[in-house]
Amino acid sequence: MLRLSEIHTSYGHIKALKGIDIEVMKGEIVCLIGSNGAGKSTALMTISGVLKPDCGKIEFNGQQIEGMDPHEIVGLGLSQVPEGRRIFPRLSVLENLEMGAFMNNSGLKEKIKHIFSLFPVLHERSNQPSGTLSGGEQQMLAIGRSLMANPKMLLLDEPSLGLAPIMVSKIFKTIKELNIEGCTILLVEQNARAALRLAHRAYVLESGIVKLHGTGEELLHNEGVRKAYLGE
């Protein structure tokens, strides 16, 4: 469904991605792990069109998308929940959700109802400025907002970052449910253990290159991964 081939991306003179190949099949949860600065978020921002790759190809559903603008890529059904949630703090919860459906405004009421049934706490706070929500609530809003675009595929960047353990398991449960409902997922996570358990396949990124890849199970038992990312 999504294929990156030989993607190079740089910030000025600093090369952040040095030729990565990643493939995500329809219906999969694929996880991207790696330490800080390995290029995980850069990879997602490149896929979403916020960063332009220096060279390489990105294919989504058989269509070349590198060089497209971010809003066009959202229009193709590829949405991202970026790191740090980035909800619009001075827009209300409801307005944040409306913005999520900016490309596809049809059936707005039903879609909002669906999000509220996924995350009832957002319903209670629907008219509150979303900057006043707790971290976990903001993460739910960020995921809810991305679902408003009816994405075929979702890129999630560190959805568990800074959340209480109970929130983390709720978010992971939600990701699994979304996947079962048919949404393909590319997940970037620091919480490697939980992510590898959830993922069908995973890639290990190190200094801008793909160091390893395999099924979640394989990587959970890989010696190097256990030492470097699972703290054993």
Binding site: V50, D69, H71, V74, S79, R86, F88, R90, F102, N105
Partner: peptide
Amino acid sequence: TRTGKAMRATAQDMTMASLVGINVD
């Protein structure tokens, strides 16, 4: 209005606005 709200969203976080599908330009 939808456009007005998109203006506020863009003012608050331009990159994020583009990631929800707003044509920032």
